[in-house]
Simulated assay, not measured.
Amino acid sequence: MSAALPVAEAAWAREGEVWKSQAAYTADLVVTPNGSGRAWALDNLDLTGDLDLDALAGLRDAVFHAGLLINTGGQPDAALGTVEGLDNIEVTRPRTRLFEAWLQQDFGAGRGSVRAGLYDLNSEFYATAASDQLIHPAFGIGTELSATGSAGPSIFPSTALAVRLRWEDERKRYVQAAIIDAKAGTLGDPGGVDLGFAQGALGVVQVGGGDRSRWAVGAWRYGFERDDTGTPRARGIYGLFERDLTSDHGRGITLFVRGGASAGRAPIAVSLQAGATKGGVWASRPDSRLSVGFHYAKARGDGSEVGFEAAYADKIAPRTTLQPGLQLVAAPGGRSIAIASLRLIVEAW
């Protein structure tokens, strides 16, 4: 099962005229008391950098972005066997990967941009900031889309070649579209980057807008298949909504609801996620944050899955965050899974 958003972004960047970089290390301890009880340790090192091509070579409004992932550790979902996964930094192949490498050119006084290269679909599509603290993969990207493709779509931990176009108006309404190789694979994966689009392409379009209330709707479809190894003719739609209940983004409550449906050969027919996050839980702890979420997925055949997650995070040092969490999952076959987790995030620089 593909994961979604891997880690919170590092808050510190090494600034310069030409280059800036970020690094964040995330480690999870996952324990289940079911049966005799089991424990897994897994981690993710995220290294990113941005090169200002204007300052370097005079290419106005152009930037090159690259990101490297290093993942090791256990596989709780591989052992427990859920529909949607359990931890958004779990990988099936622990290794080092070139996660992103794209060039972006802005135009129209910064309202428009085009990106091309190895691209994380979930960085801009089917994403809600209010759910990004939760570690369950479904809160990053809906399962009806993340379960497609022979190796998942172009999301964590393996991306694919893509071209993305975006335009935003003065009222923060936007439209964005991407054409992505249907076979995810990057440097560090077996076979490397697919240059031939052998399994066709995935097309995604999303429109949205808003400030205090943010909304988006999107549609996706696989096409131009040359073989039958992915999810040919799979297609779907989704919608997102977030609402800040107060004007204080850092300390207020934000609600979110997301959902999508698929057709064709996509293995998951429907998924739904909803929940809330609260910043500044304690007046004396401005960096504290509490998030809760509900998720549901219905497989195209028999079986559905329902789950709940609660997570509390706080900084214990200027660059170090500790986040305990709890998940309860009702998996197919009448199985009940309880998961306790402890996430450590270190912003290395």
Results as ranks from 00 to 15, higher is better:
Ser2Trp: 07
Leu5Thr: 15
Ala8Glu: 04
Ala11Leu: 09
Ala13Thr: 11
Ala13Lys: 14
Ala13Cys: 10
Glu15Gly: 11
Glu17His: 15
Trp19Glu: 02
Gln22Leu: 08
Val30Gly: 08
Val30Asp: 02
Val30Phe: 05
Val30Thr: 15
Asn34Lys: 12
Gly37Pro: 06
Arg38Glu: 02
Leu42Asn: 09
Leu42Gly: 07
Leu45Tyr: 11
Asp46Leu: 02
Leu47Lys: 15
Asp52Cys: 12
Ala57Thr: 12
Gly58Ser: 03
Gly58His: 07
Gly58Phe: 02
Arg60Leu: 04
Ala66Gln: 09
Gly67Tyr: 12
Gly67Leu: 02
Leu68Phe: 14
Ile70Arg: 15
Ile70His: 15
Thr72Pro: 02
Pro76Tyr: 12
Gly81Glu: 00
Gly85Trp: 05
Asp87Glu: 01
Ile89Phe: 02
Ile89Ser: 00
Arg93Asn: 15
Pro94Gln: 04
Arg95Lys: 13
Leu98Met: 10
Trp102Asn: 08
Trp102Cys: 03
Arg111Thr: 12
Gly112Val: 12
Leu118Phe: 09
Asp120Gly: 09
Phe125Lys: 09
Ala127Asp: 01
Thr128Val: 06
Ala130Ser: 10
Ser131His: 08
Leu134Ile: 12
Ala138Glu: 00
Ile141Ser: 05
Gly142Ser: 09
Glu144Gln: 15
Gly149Ala: 08
Gly152Gln: 14
Pro153Val: 15
Pro157Cys: 05
Thr159Met: 01
Val163Ile: 04
Leu165Lys: 03
Leu165Trp: 13
Arg166Gly: 06
Lys172Ile: 09
Gln176Tyr: 05
Ala177Trp: 10
Ile179Pro: 03
Ile180Ala: 03
Gly188Val: 07
Asp189Gly: 08
Gly191Asp: 01
Gly191Cys: 06
Ala198Arg: 15
Ala198Val: 13
Gly203Met: 04
Val207Asp: 01
Gly208His: 08
Gly209Trp: 06
Gly209Met: 03
Gly209Pro: 00
Arg212Pro: 05
Gly218Cys: 00
Phe224Gly: 08
Glu225Leu: 04
Asp227Lys: 10
Asp227Cys: 05
Asp228Ala: 07
Arg233Met: 04
Ala234Leu: 04
Ala234Val: 15
Arg235Ile: 13
Ile237Ala: 10
Tyr238Gln: 07
Glu242Gly: 07
Asp244Ala: 11
Asp244Glu: 04
Leu245Tyr: 10
Leu245Ile: 13
Ser247Ala: 15
Gly250Ser: 14
Gly252Val: 10
Phe256His: 11
Arg258Glu: 00
Gly260Asn: 09
Ser262Leu: 02
Gly264Tyr: 14
Ile268Pro: 03
Val270Ser: 01
Ser271Gly: 11
Leu272Arg: 13
Gly275Thr: 13
Lys278Val: 11
Lys278Phe: 09
Gly279Cys: 05
Val281Ala: 03
Trp282Arg: 12
Trp282Glu: 00
Arg285Ile: 14
Leu290Tyr: 08
Ser291Gln: 12
Lys298Val: 10
Lys298Asp: 00
Asp302Asn: 11
Asp302Trp: 04
Ser304Pro: 03
Phe308Ser: 10
Ala310Pro: 08
Ala313Ile: 07
Lys315Val: 09
Leu328Gly: 13
Ala338Met: 13
Ile345His: 09
